[in-house]
């Protein structure tokens, strides 16, 4: 099957992930990432962002079960793939970057040996070619003296450098899709900005499809073309990033945006918004809106199935309220 230009690189429909039959970690998540597009998944910790990404890679820990209508990558059905086929895809066409650069490199090997291994595995490259490619990519991610870095061990590198190495390593085989799971969370603010700029530059140059997981709305505003706001295993609101930020509709999205101080808009001394409570654990058979316990606008009918509403364009959200609701009209 060949994918046409318009087809998304990755398309996930109605993904459900169940942890040991006791917790529904992801409940019917759908998502599409097109070539050259950055899609951000945003939400609090425990909303099912990372676990959705791991489901796409089929790297879920034992005892966690995924089901979906389809998970397609470049037209291929990932659900039907054997473990062997999947591992041929991982690191080759689909790459992943993790949150903790301090621990995602193996302390027992040099940078060069870890990087070239990926190319040797997928492309049957010989060590010298792979090393050349690694040096080229290290230079590309802005590491000076790549030749020297190749011979160093992870403990000799700073966190920011290690994350650059991870990015370079993810690019070894020219992937089509890059999944970045909170790639900047563990880094200093200044280094965060550098890494984000780097990801953006690489994504534009290489035409990657980038699925970026973050809990930082600032990152979303800066990086994404599309955003999916996740809450308790559901995408509660999705759309082009401009639409969602200009007209946030789901109470959770509005709540998240209220938590952020906006220069020139938030007055000194004025309290920031907050969302009371924390993300609930959703048992099987749960019905209705997962956010209703924390929602300011909750009503009795929120305990029933919630409609997916269209807010114009590609912008949709999962709530009983109309697109133009206000606090006053909801109450």
């Amino acid at each position: 099957m060949t994918a046409s230009l318009q087809d998304p690189v990755l398309s996930v429909a109605n993904l459900r992930v169940s942890i040991g039959g006791r917790t529904e970690a992801v409940r019917g998540m759908s998502l599409a990432v097109a070539r050259g597009e950055t899609h951000c998944m945003v939400g609090e910790s425990g909303c099912g962002k990372s676990i959705s990404a791991l489901s796409v890679m089929n790297l879920l820990p034992r005892g966690i079960i995924r089901t979906a209508d389809h998970i397609r990558f470049q037209g291929q059905d990932l659900l039907a793939m054997s473990e062997r086929q999947m591992s041929r895809l991982r690191g080759d066409k689909i790459s992943m970057i993790f949150q903790e650069p301090m621990t995602s490199l193996n302390p027992a090997y040099t940078i060069g040996s870890q990087m070239s291994e990926v190319l040797e595995r997928h492309r049957r490259a010989i060590r010298r070619q792979a090393m050349d490619r690694a040096a080229e990519l290290l230079a590309r991610v802005g590491i000076t003296a790549p030749g020297m870095r190749l011979g160093q061990y992870p403990h000799q590198l700073s966190g920011g450098l290690r994350q650059r190495v991870m990015i370079a390593m993810a690019l070894m085989c020219d992937p089509e899709l890059l999944i970045a799971d909170e790639p900047t969370t563990a880094l200093d603010v200044t280094v965060q900005a550098q890494i984000l700029r780097l990801l953006q530059k690489l994504q534009q140059e290489l035409g990657l499809a980038l699925l970026l997981i973050t809990h930082d709305l600032g990152v979303v505003a800066r990086m994404a073309q599309r955003v999916s706001v996740m809450y308790a295993g559901e995408v509660v609101e999705t759309g082009a990033v401009g639409d969602v930020f200009a007209a946030p509709t789901h109470p959770y999205t509005r709540g998240l945006l209220d938590c952020i101080p906006v220069p020139g808009k938030t007055q000194t001394g004025e309290p920031l918004g907050n969302i009371p409570g924390m993300v609930p654990r959703i048992p099987p058979g749960f019905a209705g809106c997962g956010f209703r316990d924390r929602c300011m606008s909750a009503a009795p009918e929120c305990a029933q199935a919630v409609p997916l509403r269209d807010a114009g364009g590609d912008h949709s959200y999962l709530c009983r309220l109309p697109p133009d609701w206000t606090r006053a009209s909801a109450a």
Binding site: M57, L59, S87, R90, G91, S104, P107, R121
Partner: peptide
């Protein structure tokens, strides 16, 4: 449970 094991899996290691 360390990340480099997950990273190796994500890079297609057997």
């Amino acid at each position: 449970n360390l990340d480099y094991i997950a990273a190796a899996q994500a890079a297609g290691a057997s």
